[in-house]
Structure formats: structure tokens, C-alpha cells
Amino acid sequence: MDALVNQLPTGLAIGAVLLLAALGLNFTFGQMGVINMAHGEFIMVGAYTAYVLHAWAGLDPTWSLIAALPLAFTLTGTLGWLLELGLIRHFYGRPLDTLLLTFGIGMILQQAARDTFGAPNVDVPAPGWLTDGTTLPGGIRLHHSRLFILALALVCVLAIAHYLHRTHQGRQMRAVIHNRDLAGVSGINTRKVDATTFFIGSGLAGVAGVALTLIGPTGPTLGANYIVDAFLVVVIGGLGRLRGTVLAAFALGILNATAQAWTDASLAKLLVFAAIIAFLQARPQGLFTVKTRALT
């Protein structure tokens, strides 16, 4: 129990990063069943957006961070919207094909980043007020950048919850997720809803990318490093459940941190994997499920 308490801040920090990376997937994978493997590359694009604002446009760290968040959201959102419009919508109902298709897109984006920014990692300096940390009584150190990411993740979750439950478009989106055909005949433009869902989901990847520049270097494979864990979060959380995604992200974060403290980082991943398989023995559909009558 003591170990768990000690690892809690680290776990929450990892969880917040996972949550940010997985939030967009909650839309595209969780809500639409589309596995967008290029999501990781959208995260990478978001990170480079912050880099460009700082290194090319010459904004100071605080302003580049503030400007990068909406800009990255719009940019990756548009990329996702284009991807849905041009490719993915032809492959609804074929999730495994979409997976491979979008992996190809991801490869292309990764190489494009390599050609534009070079293969070596670049650094985006964090604003001064985020580089500091606070030491809690008991010697646990809280990095401000981690706190910022945690806050950002929570703001995003609240914004999504508000959108899904309090706005007209959000309710339409939930209707489409629940029963596409019925929503369609009820006069909802399902095509438009799909496109919007993809825009928001991909836009959140951009936000995650900007946040990741605060805690590490930016490179062409930045997103690829997070995407596997981000997908695991959605798998554990259950399809289309915001609550599940939030819980799963922090559970996985804390599990990772504890396992790392217990053994070492390389063995921890395998232990976490084993824990997930064990978890699926009890809850094969993830933390939360939607019951369906469809026969598959």
C-alpha cells in the first residue's frame, strides 16, 4: 500500500498523458469503431505544431503553448476530417481493414515529418512557470508540467462530457452511436455526424501532441510511442465510454508506475500486459459495456 501511495503522483502523471492520447480515440474508436492507427501521427503533428510556432515563428514558450493548443486542434482535426472524408467512410464495418489502411497513412505522415524536420528529435522549451516543481511533505515531487497536463486532460474530459450531453450536436452523435439506422431515419445527417466525430477525435490528438512537448523531446515517432498504450486504454475502458476511458487511463498509469517501481521499466510493460489479459478474464468487454442484440 505504501508503494502505491508513493507511486500515485507518477501514476497520475502517466495516466494523464495516456488519457490525453486516448481521449481522441474514445471518439474515433470508442464511438465509431474505427481504429485510426494514424492517430499517433496526429499526436506527432500536434507536437510539431508547437515546435514550429516556437522555432520558426519565434513565439516565446508561453505564447507558443497557448497558441499551439487551438492551432494543433484545428490542424489535426482537419487532417482527421480529410481522412474520414477521403478514405475511412468507405470502410465502415471493416474495422480491421481500416486499421491497416490508416497505418499506411501513419507511415506516410511519419516519413513526411522526417523529411520536413529531420529524423533527430527536437526540443520545444516549456514555459518557465512549468519547468519548476513543488515538493510535497514526504519528499514527493510534483512537476508543474505534469500538473498542467493533468489539468488539461481534465478540462478536455469536462468539455467532451459537456459536448456529448449538453449540446444538440453531441446528442445527435450519441444517437448515431447508439443506433445508426434509427438516427438516420429520424432525420439526423449521419454523414455530418461522422465527419464531426472524426474532426473532434483527431483534434484531441493534436492537443495531446502539444502537451507531450512539455515532458519530452519531439520526433517523428513520438505518437507511435504512445499509441499502443492509448489503444489499450480504450480496450480496457470499453467501447464508447468516457467514464471507462478516464478510469482505464489512470488505472493503467498507476499500474505502470507501480510495476516500474517494483521491478524495472522493461519488465513492467509485460506485467501490465499480463494484468490486462487477466482483467479481460473478468470483464471481457472492458469496464463498461453497451449491450447489443446484433449477432456477429
Partner: peptide, 20 residues
């Protein structure tokens, strides 16, 4: 998709283990 993603996670964990 769940199965595919679990497989991918296994591949990632395996490589991290080998490197570590």
C-alpha cells in the same frame, strides 16, 4: 480489433523487454 490491438501491445512489450 481488440485482439489485433492486444497483439500489438504484446509486440511492444516484448521488444521493450528485450532491449531492457
Amino acid at each position: 480489433a481488440y485482439f489485433a490491438l492486444l497483439n500489438q501491445a504484446l509486440a511492444a512489450a516484448f521488444v521493450i523487454l528485450l532491449i531492457g
